[in-house]
Structure formats: C-alpha cells, structure tokens
C-alpha cells in the first residue's frame, strides 16, 4: 500500500445469501483512495455503495478479495481489532444522524472521546472546539429531539470529527435535509476536509452532494462503472 493511500481495495466481492440463492452486492471492485480525498461512491439504490462503505468502515467483511484501510486488512481483523480501527481512525455520518436520543449535544459529541479514554479537561476542550467548528455552541445542552434536521446532522459531523479521524465515512448525509441545510452541511465538510486534511468518502445519489465531490466513483450493479476526478472549477464550492 502506497504511504499516501488510505484505502486500497483489490478484487473485492461481497455476496449475500438470499434464502437458497445468493445476491452479489459487490463484484470485482478495485479501488484506492489517497489521504485528504473528498470522494463519493455514486449510484442508484442496490448498486452496492453502502455495502462498500460498510466494508471500508469494518462493519462488514468481504466475501473474497482484499480491502485495506489504514494498512489493515478488513477481512482479517478480529471483532476487537475492527472496533479499535473504528474507535481510533474512522468517523461515521449517517443518513438518519444516529444520535443518542437521551444524551445532549455535548454528550453525543463527547461519546467517541469517552471510548478513547481521553481525560475530562481535554475531552471538554475537544468537544467545544468541534461544536465551534459546526456552530453549535449555543446548543450544548439541547437533546436531539429538540434540534432541527440540519442541526442534528451538524452534531453528527461534530461527533465524527471530534477525534480528528483519518477517514470519515458518510452514508447519504443529506438525504433527510432540505437544500439550504444540505449545502450548509456540505460546505462545512469541504472546509473540514481542506483545513484538517480529513479524508471523506460518501455514499450518495444526491446531486447536491455530487456537486461538491472532488472524485466521483460510479457504481452500477456492484461494479465500478466510472471513476472520475473533478477539477476545482467544476465543484459546487
């Protein structure tokens, strides 16, 4: 694996059993992602983008082939090692935010740091920094049900970013947001990508997201159909 590469995928296949038959979700995927990329897996429903994102996120394993993330082979990781990888190096942003409903904004963002056993003072500083990036300092004590969709997604981004992960995986992050909120969220992610050099990998079919991507990987029927880089004047920024 090249030292600038963060993800390398070789001949990856993922097959799901469907009763007595099988469904091939990913077929012969070959990809690599460099550090600091702002890349999207684009494709219609069932194209395999979320499955690929889950494998990269060590939430799932390939049926065959190799998926290397930060020099670790996903298929060979034990449950504990996979959890360590997610805990230390990966940030997740989900379509439906997946915030902990009974925790307030501060506690939600603090959660990954608690798992990393970071001291209370440092934890507080890191959380407040993250909330400041996302413009949420006035919502510290609010609970998710009291927030708008855009605010919830910003909390989710703060939670994903607070530990400064090497890679952020975002699955349809704007699917539940209106246009204005979507653009706001995406601009924030672009800013974080540029300022913190965090690598972002999206799974999306939302044109608004696609407009911000620097690299677009099109998936169709579990295969990479097209992989294209976007010049800076083509992005929505």
């Amino acid at each position: 694996m090249d030292k600038n590469e963060i993800i390398q995928i070789k001949e990856l296949k993922k097959i799901f059993p469907m009763g007595k038959s099988e469904f091939t979700a990913l077929n012969d995927i070959n990809l690599s992602l460099g550090k600091g990329e702002f890349t999207g897996l684009i494709g219609p429903s069932g194209s395999g983008k979320t499955t690929l994102l889950n494998i990269v996120g060590s939430l799932d394993t390939p049926t065959s082939g190799e998926a290397w993330v930060l020099d670790q082979s996903i298929g060979k990781l034990t449950a504990k090692e996979a959890a360590q990888l997610r805990k230390k190096n990966l940030g997740f942003i989900f379509q439906s935010y997946n915030l902990l409903a009974v925790h307030n904004v501060f506690e939600n963002v603090e959660f990954p740091l608690l798992l990393l056993k970071i001291g209370a003072a440092e934890r507080r500083k890191m959380v407040m920094d993250a909330l400041e990036w996302l413009g949420l300092t006035d919502k510290v004590r609010s609970k998710p049900p009291q927030l708008s969709g855009g605010e919830c997604q910003r909390v989710a981004i703060a939670r994903a970013m607070v530990k400064r992960p090497s890679l952020v995986l975002a699955d349809e992050p704007t699917a539940n947001l209106d246009a204005a909120n979507s653009h706001h969220i995406l601009q924030t992610m672009v800013k974080l990508n540029e300022e913190l050099k965090t690598t972002f990998l999206f799974a999306t079919h939302d044109e608004k997201v696609i407009g911000y991507l620097k690299r677009k990987i099109y998936l169709f029927d579990g295969k990479v159909a097209k992989d294209e880089w976007v010049t800076s004047n083509q992005t929505a920024k």
Binding site: L59, A79, K80, Q84, R86, F94, N98, A101, L115
Partner: peptide
C-alpha cells in the same frame, strides 16, 4: 437497535 448499531460504529465491540 439503531443505538446499538451506533455504539458499534463508534468503536464499541458487541461484547461491550
């Protein structure tokens, strides 16, 4: 369930 999935995504093992 969603919360359980989130814990795991954020770095908890199932046992934890």
């Amino acid at each position: 369930q969603k919360e359980i999935g989130t814990y795991i995504a954020l770095g908890y093992t199932r046992r934890e």
